[in-house]
Design a binder for these strands. Structure first.
Lengths: 167, 167
DNA sequence: TCTATCTAGTTAAACTTTCAAGAAAAGGTC
DNA sequence: GACCTTTTCTTGAAAGTTTAACTAGATAGA
């Protein structure tokens, strides 16, 4: 089943199929693992934690909703719901954007920052044990390059810039 | 910030942080991409599609619920909901297990099989374009090894078998 | 047998995500 | 300015997931 009939659908080689299965397997286990770890230790899913981390690294610990959504690779709708939830927890608050009356800033509160400071070490340790402790330096480097290539290929933004046939 | 103070929390090196960001970025983009592709072309999310594929490869195109859940790495509860939905679509049906009166088999119907046959080429093509078309043979091999290592490390089952210090 | 325990699968409720629709402000064009 | 389009963000409903509780049947031990 490795070679496709000419004109028919092209299937993956046996090696590609095996790599694809390993990829799906590993990524779902990883996401489950981190979701549980953070739900247990920080009371929120991984995506929400990522939002707080993102805010914590932004200037003045705040960011426009649209920018945050873009950086975190989620829809604005999803972000609206997420921020509403995090606001209830007291970890984020909204403030009006001075320059654009449509705009909102999501702001990481002190409580949010403290929570992050408390749970970060455990989360980093979980990531290390699940990934970096098991890979050689060469593998780490290789993984970085591979993920970079895949991400670049899937970037939705500014497709035009790479589509000469549309110019 | 690369080196940690002894006794304090160990952080990731700059390279590890960058690799981790690339990993998160690429895997979320990939999952979003495939979810949309399959929602559009097959009318279901990626996980549900994976269940049908799994059934299609099982002997007699059927599998015990618990086994299917284990193989697909999802909870039994999630599978119950998923099968209920796929049953409504006519792609799967349940049948009582003859040997164990508690048991249920999930069975891929002919309609389900046809649907799979129709949508598989497009899905394979999406996977190829997103991943294999962009990686060198060395990178594909490397990715396979890396994902294998990560998955093995996160395997929940039979941890005892690999824990000499518990013996 | 009788009983306790475990396993298979489902269900209800709470929560998260997606999708489509909509309000409000900004930007451009005449 | 008037008009049209775009951008920003929110909302409500539908779909999917999680957690804990629950039923029914299997299993093992006294």
């Amino acid at each position: 089943m490795t070679t496709a009939s000419p004109g028919g659908p092209r299937w993956l080689t046996d090696e590609e199929q095996s790599v694809w299965r390993a990829y799906l397997h590993a990524t779902t286990l990883m996401e489950d693992h981190l979701d549980r770890q953070l739900q247990r230790d920080a009371g929120m899913p991984h995506v929400y934690y990522g939002l707080l981390v993102n805010l914590s690294q932004a200037p003045r610990r705040r960011k426009r909703m649209t920018d945050l959504a873009k950086d975190a690779k989620i829809t604005r709708s999803r972000l609206s719901h997420a921020v509403a939830r995090l606001e209830k927890n007291g970890w984020v608050r909204r403030e009006d954007c001075p320059s654009d009356k449509r705009g909102q800033n999501a702001v990481l509160t002190d409580e949010g920052y403290d929570m992050l400071a408390r749970s970060a070490p455990g989360h980093v340790e979980a990531v290390r044990q699940a990934m970096f402790a098991r890979l050689s330096p060469q593998q780490v480097q290789s993984l970085g390059e591979i993920m970079q290539v895949i991400a670049t290929g899937l970037q939705p933004e500014d497709m035009d810039a790479d589509l000469p046939w549309l110019r």
